[in-house]
């Protein structure tokens, strides 16, 4: 079975989407599948990427939530892929993991619904979507084992997804967040913005600048 793991983050490195796929890959490797990794960080897909994705049995997208939806560069690539994949009429399964900086995983629901709609237009089969809240934490807790501490629920969802991918089966979308108090997450995130601003030579109140 050929599985394509597709990172839809525009970031070259250090993205939450990359962490998610790395965690998922550790579960899929146990199943003995052939796994290809792709990074759609710019608008457009190369002919080689289109050919490789068209030959996959399962496409697994991981991407950040941008303004309640799919990032525009990935959307651009999906439009291109739709036009290519719809001609091939293969029984490819599609899975998607959307992560957002907000605490609630369900805020990814419209982006996942759009991915399902893309599947339908491209003639592919929708497998399952996972909406992940507090996604900004994932790179910072990369060393925490999957299924433990703040990654407990995230780990359970990934295990279910990995089993569905291995069986080429479909399932209900899942929405998870960190096993971590919402207020503490908020305070930690906001302290992080202040630290980043100071590292750039700004004062904390500069974060509120109006132009």
């Amino acid at each position: 079975m050929k599985i394509a793991l597709i990172n839809g983050s525009p970031k070259t490195s250090g993205s939450a989407s990359g962490c998610i796929l790395q965690n998922l890959r550790s579960l899929l490797d146990e199943e003995g599948s052939v796994i290809g990794e792709y990074h759609l960080k710019r608008p457009g897909v190369s002919a080689e990427e289109v050919a490789a994705l068209g030959q996959s049995d399962a496409l697994v997208f991981a991407f950040p939530l941008y303004v309640d939806g799919i990032p525009s560069h990935l959307l651009h690539s999906l439009v291109q892929l739709e036009q290519s994949l719809v001609k091939e009429k293969q029984e490819t399964m599609v899975y998607a993991l959307a992560n957002c900086g907000f605490y609630e995983g369900h805020q990814n629901r419209w982006a996942l619904a759009m991915m399902e709609s893309w599947c339908s237009k491209a003639g592919l089969m929708w497998g399952q979507g996972i909406g992940i809240g507090a996604g900004g934490m994932l790179p910072a807790i990369q060393s925490v084992p999957l299924g433990y501490g703040p990654k407990k629920n995230f780990g359970k969802a990934l295990q279910q997804l990995a089993a569905n991918i291995a069986n080429c089966s479909a399932d209900e979308n899942l929405f998870v967040t960190a096993n971590f108090p919402k207020l503490v997450y908020k305070l930690a995130a906001e302290a992080g913005w202040v630290r980043s601003a100071k590292a750039n030579g700004l004062r904390w109140r500069d974060l509120s600048l109006r132009r």
Binding site: Y66, V67, I70, S72, H73, L75, V79, A113, S117, L207
Partner: peptide, 24 residues
């Protein structure tokens, strides 16, 4: 596009997040 905006319009929204503050 799939229930959302076209890539160009979505890009405008993506490039507009300076409208909001990073805090929650």
């Amino acid at each position: 596009c799939y229930g959302g905006f076209s890539p160009f319009v979505k890009n405008i929204f993506d490039r507009s997040i300076s409208y909001v503050h990073p805090n929650f």
